[in-house]
Amino acid sequence: MEQGIPPDAPHPRDLVAGLEKGLQVIEAFDQERSRLTIAEVAVRTGLTRAAARRYLITLTHLGYMRHENKLFSLTPAVLRLGQSYLHSARLPRIAQPLLYRLAYSLGEAASCGVLDDRELVCVAAVSAGRLVSTTLQPGTRVPAYCTANGRVLLAHLPTDEVEKYLASVEPERITAHTIVHRERLALEIARTREQGYALVDQELELGLRAIAVPLRNFRGEIVAALNVSVHEGRMPLEAMVERCLPAMVKIQAELSALL
């Protein structure tokens, strides 16, 4: 092992630096920064201005970017990258029919999500005819700390990883109910680990309540989380545990046998 290279990391000569930097350019755009200049992309990616310009021109040529009045923005073609995952990954394909059964048996929305760094990414969802939240759509990303699926997945990380997460995360008060103090978040994550499910009340959106359980593969590894979301006016918190959790546990067992 060469000095400075982690044992599980690939050797630098095996990496394609151009691909890595091109993806960094795409990731520089987000909801707050949907249109950027060359200089702004350079700052956000750490590239030189000349290099940022070449990557932006290349991405524009490939159809992933558009250019207008010195401002660059992503095109819908970027969605192909996410669709490739949703169409090819086993988890969404296996989860979707069971989510459908769970959602329609309860008459509430159900979804499945995975952890990607500090965010919870929805990979499958069924609304059961109820539009509870626009975040319950495949491909949407939300903070992990204020979601039921996110808390479940954080709770089952190794202890040192949870500590690193809590030390580095900067919780935003999205609603008046959002838990933003690290000490209280640590307690909620510990509670989730102990009881086996997470219950989150209007921390991501006003009116949105959710309950989640972990999903294990056949080796017993946590690979995703399953949740049911309801509008607070339809179901009190206590009823969510009593009514939703038993049905979720059944689907949890079925999915774990298939993953």
Rank of each mutant, 00 (worst) to 15 (best):
E2M: 09
Q3F: 10
Q3M: 07
P6K: 15
A9L: 13
D14M: 12
L15M: 13
V16A: 14
G22P: 01
L23M: 13
V25Q: 06
E27C: 10
E27N: 15
E32P: 01
E32I: 09
V41H: 02
A42M: 04
V43W: 00
V43K: 07
R44M: 03
T48C: 07
R53Q: 12
R54D: 13
R54G: 03
I57S: 12
T60I: 02
G63L: 11
R66G: 04
R66V: 07
H67A: 06
S73Q: 08
L74I: 06
P76W: 07
R80Y: 09
Q83Y: 08
S88I: 01
A89L: 05
R90L: 15
L91P: 00
Q96Y: 15
L98Y: 15
L106K: 11
L106P: 09
E108I: 03
D116V: 14
E119H: 12
S127M: 02
R130P: 04
L131C: 04
V132T: 14
T135Q: 07
R141W: 02
R141A: 10
R141H: 05
Y145Q: 02
C146V: 10
T147C: 03
A148M: 03
A148T: 05
R151W: 01
P158I: 00
K164T: 14
L166N: 03
L166D: 06
A167T: 06
E170W: 01
E172C: 10
R173S: 11
I174C: 01
I179R: 08
H181V: 13
E183Q: 13
I189A: 09
R191V: 02
Q195V: 06
G196E: 02
Q202F: 01
E203G: 13
E203R: 12
G207N: 09
G207A: 09
V213A: 05
L215V: 05
F218L: 13
G220T: 05
G220W: 01
V228C: 02
S229Q: 03
S229N: 06
E232L: 00
P236A: 06
L237Q: 14
E238H: 06
M248H: 03
K250F: 04
K250S: 12
Q252N: 03
S256I: 08
A257L: 12
